Amino acid sequence: FDIYVVTADYLPLGAEQDAITLREGQYVEVLDAAHPLRWLVRTKPTKSSPSRQGWVSPAYLDRRL
């Protein structure tokens, strides 16, 4: 999967189903980028939180090589 970094805090609107909150600087794996406005991502697990999966706007993501 492609690795992206979150460029700004992402707080989903209440109406968005299956969306997750992301923090600036967080790394995520993009699982599904087929839709231009919503990408399915999975967060990297940390010592304090397990990995999470949900939909985010790709405008908040920047690809890492």
Rank of each mutant, 00 (worst) to 15 (best):
D9E: 06
P12K: 06
T21M: 13
W55L: 03
K44A: 11
L13Q: 13
I20Y: 06
S49Y: 10
E24H: 09
A8G: 07
D62P: 01
E24D: 04
S57C: 06
G25H: 03
S49R: 09
Q26S: 07
Q26E: 15
E24L: 12
F1G: 11
H35V: 04
V28N: 00
P36C: 05
V6Y: 01
P58S: 08
S51H: 04
Q53V: 15
Q26M: 12
K47V: 12
Q26P: 00
R23Y: 15
D2W: 14
R23F: 15
V56D: 00
P12W: 07
V41F: 01
E29L: 10
T43N: 02
V5L: 09
T21S: 14
P45E: 11
A19H: 14
P12C: 06
P12V: 08
L40Q: 03
V30T: 02
S49F: 11
S57M: 06
V41W: 01
P50R: 05
S48M: 12
A33H: 09
H35R: 06
T43A: 04
V6K: 00
E16P: 08
V56L: 04
L11Y: 15
S57F: 04
R63K: 15
Q53K: 08
A33R: 14
S49W: 09
W55D: 00
V41A: 01
T43I: 08
V56K: 00
L40M: 05
T46Y: 10
T7V: 14
G14S: 14
Y27S: 06
V56A: 06
G54C: 06
L65G: 13
V5S: 04
P58Y: 02
Y60Q: 03
V56C: 06
D18E: 09
W55I: 03
A15P: 11
A19T: 10
A34F: 09
I3P: 03
K47M: 13
A15V: 12
L61N: 01
Y4L: 03
T21A: 13
A19N: 10
L61V: 03
I20P: 04
R38I: 06
L22F: 04
L65F: 14
Y4F: 10
A33V: 05
P36R: 04
S48D: 15
Y60K: 03
P36Y: 05
Y4R: 03
S51L: 06
R38Q: 07
A15K: 04
R42V: 05
Q17F: 13
V6G: 00
S49H: 12
A33G: 10
R52K: 13
Q26A: 05
S57L: 05
G14V: 13
D9L: 05
D32I: 09
Y27K: 06
T46P: 03
P50D: 07
P58A: 06
I3D: 06
L22N: 01
R64H: 15
F1M: 10
T46V: 06
Q26L: 04
S49A: 14
L13W: 10
E29S: 05
L61C: 02
R52F: 10
P36E: 09
R63A: 05
D32Y: 09
L65Y: 14
T43P: 02
T46N: 09
Q17N: 13
L61F: 03
T46G: 09
P36A: 08
G14T: 13
H35T: 10
Q53P: 02
V56N: 00
S49V: 10
D32W: 11
V28T: 01
Y4D: 00
Y60C: 05
R23K: 13
Y27A: 05
R64V: 15
Y10K: 03
Y27H: 10
L61A: 00
D2Q: 13
T46W: 07
Q53A: 07
R63S: 09
H35M: 08
F1N: 10
R52L: 14
Y60I: 10
Y27P: 04
E29F: 13
R42W: 03
Y4C: 04
Q53C: 09
K44R: 14
Q26Y: 03
W55Y: 11
P50Q: 07
W55P: 01
Q17I: 14
D18M: 07
R23I: 11
R63F: 15
I3A: 05
R42L: 04
R38W: 11
S51V: 10
V30Y: 01
Q17D: 13
V30N: 00
H35D: 15
Y10C: 05
Y27D: 05
V41N: 00
D2R: 10
A8V: 09
T7H: 04
T7K: 11
E16D: 13
L31C: 02
Y27L: 15
Y4A: 07
A15I: 12
P12N: 08
A33W: 08
R38A: 06
L37N: 13
L37K: 09
R52C: 05
T43C: 06
P45H: 07
V6F: 02
Y27C: 07
L31R: 02
E29P: 00
H35K: 05
T21D: 10
A19M: 10
D9A: 07
D2L: 13
E29H: 07
R52I: 15
L65R: 05
S51Y: 06
A34T: 15
G14H: 13
L65S: 14
D9N: 08
S57D: 15
V28Y: 01
Q53Y: 11
A8Y: 07
P45K: 07
K47H: 12
T43L: 08
L31G: 01
A19S: 12
D32S: 09
P45Y: 05
R38N: 04
I3K: 03
R23H: 12
S49K: 10
K47N: 14
R38V: 06
E16W: 10
P45D: 08
R63P: 10
E24Q: 14
S57T: 04
G54E: 04
T7I: 15
L11E: 14
L61M: 02
H35I: 04
L22I: 04
V28G: 00
R64W: 15
I3V: 12
A34V: 09
P45I: 04
L37P: 04
V30A: 02
S57V: 05
Q26K: 02
D18L: 06
S51K: 04
Q17C: 07
K47L: 13
L37T: 12
L31Q: 02
Q53H: 06
L65H: 12
I3F: 09
L13A: 13
V30I: 09
E29A: 06
D62C: 09
L11S: 12
I3Q: 07
S49C: 09
R63L: 15
G14N: 13
L31E: 01
S51G: 09
T7C: 06
Q26I: 05
R64M: 15
R63D: 07
V5Q: 08
K44I: 15
E16Q: 09
T43R: 02
D62G: 11
L22S: 00
A59T: 11
G14Y: 12
V41E: 00
D2G: 11
D9P: 06
E29M: 10
L61I: 05
D2N: 11
A33E: 05
V28M: 01
D32L: 07
R63N: 10
R42H: 02
F1S: 08
L31M: 08
A19L: 08
Y10F: 11
Y10I: 08
